[in-house]
Design a protein around this nucleic acid. Structure first.
Lengths: 194, 194
DNA sequence: CAACATACGGAGACGGTCTCCGGATTGTCA
DNA sequence: TGACAATCCGGAGACCGTCTCCGTATGTTG
């Protein structure tokens, strides 16, 4: 529905489109290096544009983040498909999905924070994404529960939050690198049935 | 060693002392209402003093926080004593200690964040406090492990981080109030041996 | 090539952190 | 008690980050 709609808007100007993708490129790198709390104006400057331009494309940090994560969404969705296709054991499938979620939520330093926020304020552009992933988690979870591999009292939302929480611990590189692993193990013994 | 040291500093002026405690009072209330990310200058204004005065007493937000938590330290220490005195079952003792830690780390909205930071940068005034509580956690934990109530591979540091992580989830009041409870339960099945 | 919609850019309002130092206040000692 | 020195106060303002507004520039369409 983007081609021949009745009163269709003309398509965005090419310079705008170019700027948009360029901002995303720069932001991707900048957030990777400085974490998501880095200065947005600095990103604009590094992209060679004015702050106004950046803020028109992405009205705030969350919007920019959402756009960046959109790119990684395909990655996660295809991982989701691969797991459904290749992993027979439903418990193992859940475990692998949670691991994929963990990688996703540590894409940038400090990412777990806005993700958690998005779960409370549904006005956030990240809220929809999170909700979708919770649903997927629930699917894997109920399958595992049906097969007796996961405790029945656990909910998908709780697992999603667990992943976020352990990713949050991992943030701000700890002196002790083993803690995130330990927490993951703790979580797993928490939801799994041996 | 505060009385008759050789070249002892004279004791602080009474107005300074008065200001200090007054700042703490105001900050306690302000952080309770607005979370720990509230404006420090606003606290100064509300206390009827200049920003400079606040920052001389507490050079940054962390220092102020540390001072506020110092007050609650007694509370936690006495809780620690009470548990050791009254709770016979070492596993139950550990559980109760973790619960006390959880309450401590949710004293103010947003508190878990600086606490986690303090664990990585040992220059923080909060670092010592955290370290102490990790040690205590380790004591309770090894006792529980000796009695076969806790998994041997778990470490005190991991449990402390777990508590912080669940408190972090609780922050920013979720629409779903049951999640923190669920996470706590998950954690417990994670470290406990039935 | 108009003329119109759209987008750009940067000046600057705003709010927060934190510093600096002239002036006020307190403690001390003769 | 009356200086004097040590100490502390207060607020102006430097600095940084977020975000807005609008005159100007650039694309797009007929």
């Amino acid at each position: 529905m983007s081609d021949t709609t009745g009163a269709r808007a003309r398509r965005p100007r090419t310079d705008a489109q170019r700027n948009r993708t360029h901002i995303l490129d720069v932001a991707e790198q900048y957030f990777s290096e400085h974490g998501i709390t880095g200065s947005l104006d600095a990103i604009a400057k590094q992209a060679g544009i004015g702050p106004g331009t950046l803020y028109r494309h992405f009205p705030n940090r969350e919007a920019l983040l959402a756009a960046l994560l959109k790119a990684r969404e395909d990655e996660l969705v295809s991982r989701h498909d691969a797991i459904r296709r290749e992993v027979r054991d439903s418990t193992e499938a859940l475990a692998q999905w949670l691991e994929a979620l963990g990688r996703w939520s540590t894409a940038f330093e400090g990412l777990p924070e806005p993700l958690r926020m998005a779960l409370t304020e549904d006005t956030s552009p990240l809220a929809l994404t999170c909700q979708g992933y919770i649903t997927i988690t629930d699917e894997f979870l109920t399958a595992a529960q049906r097969d007796g591999g996961a405790r029945p009292e656990v909910r998908g939302r709780d697992l999603f939050l667990s992943v976020l929480a352990t990713s949050w611990v991992r943030s701000a590189a700890m002196a002790d690198e083993s803690s995130p692993l330990a927490l993951n193990a703790l979580m797993r013994t928490g939801w799994a049935i041996p």
